[in-house]
Design a protein around this nucleic acid. Structure first.
Length: 527
RNA sequence: GGCCGCGUGCCAGAGUGGUCUAAUGGGGCGGAUUGCAAAUCCGUUUACCGUCGGUUCGAAUCCGACCGCGGCCUCCA
């Protein structure tokens, strides 16, 4: 059953037909690194990661894949690129990125306050006034979180950094594309020297609006009251958008033929996709992002990329994940109702469970994220792990997949626009039907996990003493160990009142205990 | 106003014309085990699928209307 995907561009679920079925090109809009990424950001990155892993898997069939079976059995190459936006851009992008304050400047102030309050994370010694340092600081934290959650592109980028490009390193290529757009009449310079701006001429690109379902008329109407006259005055059409802004006072600026300044928000992605991925015809197979990117960001990318390349197509398939809710509420920074990955790890949740909780709702529905959801996910993982661990991971994992119903079922579900819940049902039915797992069961489980990517993630550190097994990254505290010994003695003397009291004391400290084999006690965080 | 999506048990969430008195996970309940817990294992509980109408031999699944909820429409993944 070949893979079908919902394509925002056609608004339909349709067979996925890459230009080269043996090598799929995939661009994902990544984070802007002015703060730590939260679970909502990661939901969309992980949705893209699930898709990428499935396409890579030998379980995934493509309608136009004519490669010989032997080649298909080895899986498929996906060249996946995700940008890390290290240009700040404006807090007030409502007017096309010309007003407000640069996000990096805001982040710098926040860091400076944290520094004064002595709250800067350990090991961080950055200059809050240096926007490049701020961006790099958060970029590194993002990469760390991304790898913790098994984001394939972040793992691959360790060997090939070009897979995660930074706009600040691609300014010349952006200027090149801007010059090309001006040459072809798709862009123009407005304003007088000192405050020049280069705008994309939307009327030069008739399909503008196709992706988002907007029309220029509606946009013109929608612009009413929201766009100041000052910024509009230089534009030929209210929907024209910024490619370059001359601004010598900006905290990140580069020389250009249009004056010293900074690039527009949308040009970065067009350039990075063209540069690292696009074929000679200027097309890529897949492009992903959050639903909020559809308009204006991706609409503008299409306009720029197609106008520059001359191709009617930029990305064949547009893949957009919907937003995540937190405990039933829309996430917002002002409410503060969001978690970072670090928050969750700190609370004792494991990376695999966080990942599963974030991918286990279909990417096109507004999922609700709760800690209970993470706990649910953990229980599934624990059960799966028993199957996967039944045989050692070995070379046999690379041999062709066994023909097992569970693999067919999982593949069939994922092939239908990534029906993850259906796959989980198939996996759980499979797992609960197993008495003693065989090596073939284990291999199947691991093959599935190469797509889901949860079992392979590192578990929080475990440290063991003569009496305690400390999980969830807890370190063996002498006071706790003493209590465990005391409890063991009390139990031996059948002084259960005392042993229960000690459990109560530990519980008050936020620790849960559990008697396990060998007279040891497992100590975990109460979640 | 424009565009898009959703409404299934206590919760999450599959199922897209017949095998659906509807998968799976969680919760609850009962049991095994345990000094007690926790964990684990076994069993079990609960939905005529928003409302009304239509198409059909047959609909949760298709069509229409209505009610309710949500998303995007130049900050945000």
């Amino acid at each position: 059953m070949p893979l079908r995907l919902y394509n925002t561009l056609s608004r339909r679920v349709e067979p996925f037909r890459p230009a080269d079925p043996g090598r799929v090109t995939f661009y994902s809009c990544g984070p802007t690194v002015y703060d730590d990424a939260h679970v909502g950001n990661f939901r969309s990155f992980l949705a893209a990661d699930l898709l990428r892993r499935f396409i890579q898997s030998p379980m995934c069939e493509l309608e136009n894949d004519a490669r010989p079976a032997s080649e298909r059995a080895a899986g498929r190459r996906v060249v996946h690129v995700m940008n890390i936006t290290d240009v700040g851009h404006m807090t007030d992008d409502a007017e096309g990125g010309e007003n407000g304050e640069d996000r990096m400047a805001v982040a710098g102030r926040r860091l400076e306050e944290a520094k004064k309050a002595g709250k800067l994370p350990p090991g961080a010694s950055i200059d809050p006034r240096d926007p490049y340092a701020i961006a790099e600081f958060y970029a590194q934290r993002f990469l760390q979180d991304a790898r913790t959650l098994g984001l394939g592109v972040a793992i691959d980028a360790q060997a090939d950094p070009t897979l995660m490009p930074r706009p600040t390193k691609m300014i010349p290529q952006m200027l090149e594309m801007i010059a090309k757009l001006i040459d072809k009449g798709h862009a123009y310079v407005a304003g007088k020297s000192g405050q020049r701006a280069v705008y994309f001429r939307v009327q030069s690109f008739p399909p503008y609006g196709t992706l988002s379902g907007n029309t220029l008329d509606q946009l013109r109407a929608g612009a009413g009251g929201r766009v100041s006259d000052e910024n509009q005055s230089g534009k030929e059409h209210p929907a024209d958008f910024l490619l370059w802004k001359e601004d010598r006072s900006h905290i990140m600026k580069w020389p250009s033929p249009y004056g010293e300044g900074y690039p527009g928000w949308h040009i970065e992605c067009s350039v990075m996709a063209a540069n690292r991925l696009a074929g000679a015809d200027g097309t890529i197979d897949l492009h992903s992002g959050g639903e909020d990117n559809i308009f204006p960001h991706h609409e503008c990318e299409v306009a720029q990329s197609c106008s520059a390349s001359g191709s009617p197509v930029f990305a064949r398939v547009w893949f957009h994940a919907r937003h995540l809710f937190i405990n039933g509420q829309k996430m917002s920074k002002s409410k503060g109702n969001f978690y970072t990955i670090r928050d969750l790890l700190e609370k004792g949740h494991q990376a695999g469970a966080i990942r599963l909780a974030l991918i286990n709702t279909h990417y096109r529905t507004n999922a609700d994220f709760t800690e209970q959801g993470v706990r649910d996910a953990q229980r599934m993982i624990d059960r799966w792990r028993k199957v996967a661990d039944a045989a050692p991971a070995d070379a046999a994992d690379a041999s062709p997949l066994p023909d097992m119903p569970v693999l067919r079922d999982v593949a069939a579900c994922l092939s239908e626009d990534l029906n993850i819940a259906g796959s989980l049902g198939a996996i759980n039915t499979f797992v609960s039907g197993i008495g003693t797992p065989t090596p073939a069961d284990a291999r199947a489980m691991r093959a599935i996990d190469r797509v889901l990517g949860v079992l392979s993630l590192e578990r929080a550190a475990t440290s063991t003493t003569d009496i305690g097994v400390f999980i969830d990254g807890l370190s063996p505290d002498p006071g706790v160990i003493a209590k465990l010994h005391e409890r063991a003695a009390a139990k031996k003397a059948k002084d259960f009142a005392r042993s229960d009291a000690i459990r109560g004391e530990l519980s008050a400290m936020g620790l849960a205990i559990k008697d396990i084999a060998g007279g040891k006690v497992e100590v975990s965080r109460i979640k």
